Amino acid sequence: MSKWENVEIGSSGLKIADGNYSAKYPRSEEFIVEGVPFIRANNFKNKTIQDEDMYFISPEKHAELKKGHVLPNDVLITTRGNIGEVAIVPKRHNDSNINAQIVLLRSYGNFHPLYLLHVLGSNLVKEQLPKLTTGTALKQLPVKNLKKIKIPLPPLPTQQKIAAILDEADKLRQLNKQLIAKYEALSQSLFLEMFGDYIHDKNSKKKIEDIASFIDYRGKTPERVDNGVPLISAKCVRPGYFDKTRLDFISKETYSKVMTRGYPKVGDVLFTTEGATLGYTCRIPNGFKDFAVGQRLITLQVNENYNAITLDYMLNSDTLQFEIFKQATGSAAKGIRSAKFAKILIPVPPLLLQNLFAQRIQVIEQQKAQAQQALAKSEDLFNSLLQRTFKTIDT
């Protein structure tokens, strides 16, 4: 395969415009219930625009804000906050508007829109962003810097072929994501159906320390090794699932020193106590024998009056999450002390009901796990195709 020309998008013939309207930017009172959609980064989902939580402006305000009028197949990219998220404008959003966090890119024939969408969302572009972003507290990608991003420019027929292949692979990813979302919604519905009354019943609550014992590690950061005893850290705890790919390892000698406060076991509930993952919970999955749990985590071992699966879902409920964050302290990185966490009140439904919930939820979780495996495979396929597509490009 011959190498393609690598061009800066600012000199590639694309129209590039943002929604930074300075003093003309809509004030809060100028947003209305119905009108011209005012697209924000919140509306990006699965590389398209979702209408949930959409803001609207009047046709008069829209006419005043001329820079950010979008057309179908315009590619949008976020330039503030979570920089580099991309979406393509669907037909229903013809002549909508964009806010100051978004830049539109419009091709006049030299770029296939779907090719542009996928290349802007690829690692090829994401690896360029750190050097182009500015700011500390709030990162941003100025338009003048965005124009410096380099992307490959194959012939248009080649772009169309690449776009078709990547789009089919991406559709598979999105279908798996949608399936996982349905299982999560089903789990939440079952939880509320069975425990909704208990969540708001003060008489059915006890302190967390009354239904579970705590194991936490308070020593220095243990030294990692390439192979040894698995060490579970906070990065392994994702919302509702355990990420085995992020395990660390410590030596057997370190393991004997670390585990002085108790030994966690399969099925115990993990709770993250600080940082960006504060409040995340999941259960220790099967397949572990000897292992350690590191810093910023509490291992919860339930007593005979509570089911670990129910505890996991209880801690993830909106009510408990609100209480956890209310008790958290700190500015840069919020955290909750184990002593405060122990005193939080948690609903205690009848154990029979808890066990019934656990039986039902495990069936859903098995199906969700299969969907997650399928998603992982489709992610690998998509990323592999991206890598193979752009591996011939000069940097």
Rank of each mutant, 00 (worst) to 15 (best):
L278C: 08
Q301E: 08
P349N: 14
H62P: 05
S317W: 06
P157V: 12
G135T: 10
G262T: 08
I49L: 13
T136Q: 15
E52W: 06
E209N: 14
V225F: 13
R92H: 00
F56V: 10
A308V: 13
V103P: 14
L300D: 05
L175T: 12
T299Y: 02
D95Q: 15
E184G: 07
R40E: 14
L153Q: 07
A342P: 07
N43D: 15
P90I: 01
P239M: 06
E365S: 09
I336F: 02
G109M: 07
M54W: 03
R360E: 05
L352A: 10
P154W: 04
L345D: 14
A374N: 10
D53G: 06
I211W: 15
K171G: 06
K202N: 15
Y280Q: 12
V70S: 01
A276S: 13
F195C: 09
E64D: 05
K182Q: 05
P230G: 00
R238Q: 14
G68Y: 04
A137W: 02
T392A: 08
I309A: 07
I208F: 10
Q178W: 01
N99A: 02
L65F: 02
V75R: 01
A87P: 02
S251Q: 09
P26K: 11
G135M: 04
E85V: 02
A358K: 10
P26G: 04
V103F: 02
G330Y: 10
A332C: 03
V70D: 05
S2C: 04
E5Q: 04
K139L: 06
A328M: 14
S12I: 12
N110R: 07
I9K: 09
Q387R: 03
I208Q: 06
I180K: 02
V86H: 12
K15P: 00
L352G: 11
R238W: 05
Q373D: 12
E127G: 10
L231Y: 00
R246C: 00
I102F: 15
L141H: 00
G228C: 06
A333D: 11
A234M: 00
A376V: 05
W4Q: 10
N227Y: 10
I346A: 12
G109S: 09
L120E: 09
K289I: 04
L356G: 14
R92V: 12
T392I: 13
L300A: 03
N383L: 08
V75G: 03
T134L: 06
F325N: 14
R360P: 08
Y255H: 04
D216L: 13
I39Y: 06
I199H: 11
Y108E: 15
G121Y: 08
K3H: 11
T273I: 14
L179D: 12
D74K: 05
Q327S: 11
E52K: 14
K161A: 13
L297A: 00
R238M: 15
L375R: 09
W4G: 07
G109Q: 05
D268T: 01
K24M: 09
K3D: 07
K235E: 04
V36F: 04
F249D: 01
F341N: 01
L138E: 08
N286L: 03
